[in-house]
Amino acid sequence: MKKATHALGFVLLFVFFCYQSYSQGPKVLIITAHPDDETMFPVTVFKVTHEMKGTADVALITDGSGGYNGLVASSYYGKNMTDSATGRTYLPLIRKKELLCSGEVMGIRNFYFFDQIDDFYQMNPEPFLSGERWDMNYCEKKLDKILEQGKYDFIFCLVPDAGQHAHHKTASIMALRAAQRFKGADKPIVLGGRSASKDYSFRFTELENYPETRISSKAPVFYFDRSYGFGENNKHSYMIVADWVKACHKSQSGDMNAAMHKGDLETFWYFEINGDLNIERTRAFFEQLKSSGFPTK
């Protein structure tokens, strides 16, 4: 009898905890390397801020100056957006404005700009994590302060798989390490996101040499189906929100053109550092996400 009472008490406590956590809406911090990285999961953020009455902030690590690949954007901005010198001069401001546009769609509350150099495409995160290329002492102190003040429920970053840009890997490792350093009672749950088609075959367990990136074998891959149709003749879906966000990043006209109206799912991998007890809390979050606004499966 005592065991049954204790079990019931635990369940009630868990339900109460979840209610307390989200009675004011979940709080999310997005930590990414480049303006436009948030296009991997914009609908999840949109639903948090608009339909779950939560909040979302962005911590952007680089200045975005390396994204000089906008051929059509050259006509739009009246500058050669494929030229490195032009990009280094104008892209930091242009891409901040584009992120503000994206953030208006998603309902972003605060933007934190770290302005680390968006140098060039490479695969090794170590020059950045070691402080050789980025001011890691500054970044870590700033992230710690943001987490302390924000009291976030979740941190969204990109899945740091081996094929990713070094900047993406570094930003995600920074997010994981910041969560590990957090001194508060409730550590934020860190999720690695990416968009995918419904028949995706991508698998991820961890980034070699970085054990903090290990995925929990006990958790599912959480997801939101942004292509699910509803309303009149099922012609409505949340894909339009993703397209609105992508359209803001005009300087990246090549990448955004290829990405437009693609990626049915916003998928999220659950890191082992979050602990087993937070799996159900994360599951409850995604169930609430799917049932809010215009319900999807």
Rank of each mutant, 00 (worst) to 15 (best):
K250G: 02
T282Y: 03
T55F: 02
E140G: 04
I273Y: 04
L207A: 06
D199P: 00
G78K: 12
H168E: 06
D276W: 01
S130D: 15
Y121D: 10
T55M: 08
I215D: 03
S84M: 15
D264Y: 05
I189E: 02
S102W: 03
L29D: 00
K3D: 12
D135K: 11
P42K: 00
T296A: 09
W244M: 12
V245D: 03
A7M: 11
A247I: 01
K250D: 00
I273F: 04
F14K: 07
L29C: 02
Y77M: 10
A7H: 10
L289T: 07
Q288R: 14
R95C: 07
P295A: 14
D144R: 12
V221T: 10
N234Y: 15
R226A: 10
A85I: 14
N233R: 13
R181F: 07
P188S: 12
L147Y: 09
I155N: 02
F14H: 06
H236F: 13
P295I: 06
S253V: 05
G64I: 06
E98S: 05
Y68A: 08
V28L: 15
L29M: 05
L176I: 03
K235T: 11
T267E: 01
T86I: 15
A175P: 07
Y152R: 03
K97R: 14
P220F: 13
I30T: 05
T5M: 13
L191A: 02
A258R: 14
S65I: 02
K198L: 12
K290H: 09
Q288D: 11
Y121I: 12
N209K: 15
T62C: 13
D135S: 14
K79G: 04
A259K: 14
L60H: 01
S253K: 07
A166E: 07
A242F: 02
F224Q: 01
E206M: 12
R214G: 01
Q164V: 00
V15H: 06
N257W: 11
L8R: 13
R95K: 15
V245L: 03
D199T: 14
N233A: 13
A171S: 15
S227T: 03
G67C: 08
V159N: 04
G231I: 03
Q252W: 10
V245W: 03
S74D: 08
I279V: 10
N124G: 03
I173Y: 10
K218T: 02
Y76P: 02
L99S: 07
I61C: 08
Q116R: 11
K235G: 04
G293D: 08
T44S: 14
K169Q: 12
F128M: 15
W134D: 08
P35D: 01
